[in-house]
Write a protein that binds this DNA or RNA. Structure first.
Lengths: 146, 146
DNA sequence: CTCTTTGCAAAAGTTTTGCACGCTC
DNA sequence: GAGCGTGCAAAACTTTTGCAAAGAG
């Protein structure tokens, strides 16, 4: 992802805030920038630590409050690793999945495919469950780390 | 899952403890029983709360220590829900996935299939990542709740 | 100028740790 | 009987909340 992409995402998020009646404030922008530009998922504490390098960093409470707001707006999602979770990254839209390097943490978004959807439909039929959401994350070693 | 299945699982876990040099103690057994017999994923705190109904319940520290041990032995796994996670349930073996009802919490284990494996191999080729683990969990409404 | 949002500090909640005692093997 | 495992209580962390003051629209 290149710099213009980050900027575009940040603009998108600012628009979403406006449209939902939220004010665009300095602390919110700081959290948004950190999240939008990170190549790896971050925990709330990590976001706070990173913000400490900025001029007049947000308080930890504002970090949590901003994350809650972004979550309500569906702009972020939580990453769940087999060991340890609650890291956060920008939401992926549509049928896509996250691929995360267990060595360097770098994430990559990959396309879902019809085979996975087909599988889910089969499970629905077999079990009588009405599947409304699925969580598929892949963990491995990226080319740089192997 | 029927009662004999629970018992079998408990025996299996006790054997695993023995074989790995861990002692089979009352507090450990209490945690193991609660976990093995639960139909829904539980958090450490929920396990502790449930144990309070027993005679001489374990301390909260023993609950955490037991969970850590079971995790090291690969006998449990964590459930990651889109909102809220770190609930715990017995580990599923092989290529299987969890299907969790978002209304009542009941879990069900479903077989993975070749289409999913195929998909993962395709992603490996496309990205150069070496995928070592994948997390696929399905969320929906079970027949009872719909 | 209004009313949302902030920082601070306190509170609530969760998880980890040290240590003397107890229980498993 | 040896030494692992326990409960307890304190400590370390993380997250949430109340409130007066600051700042966005």
């Amino acid at each position: 992802m290149t710099a213009p992409d980050y900027d575009q995402r940040i603009e998108h998020w600012k628009t979403a805030l406006h449209q939902n009646g939220y004010r665009v404030t300095q602390p919110r922008l700081q959290v948004i920038r950190i999240l939008a530009e990170s190549e790896i998922p971050l925990t709330p504490q990590e976001i706070y630590q990173l913000s400490l390098g900025l001029d007049s960093p947000p308080g930890i409470a504002s970090v949590y409050r901003t994350l809650e707001m972004l979550d309500d707006l569906g702009l972020i999602q939580q990453i769940h690793q087999p060991s340890g979770c609650h890291a956060i990254c920008p939401a992926v839209e549509g049928h896509k999945h996250l691929l995360i390097c267990t060595s360097c943490g770098q994430m990559r978004v990959v396309e879902g495919n019809e085979a996975v959807s087909e599988y889910i439909r089969m499970i629905e039929e077999q079990t009588g469950y009405q599947v409304e959401e699925h969580l598929l994350q892949l963990f491995g070693i990226c080319q740089n780390c192997s």
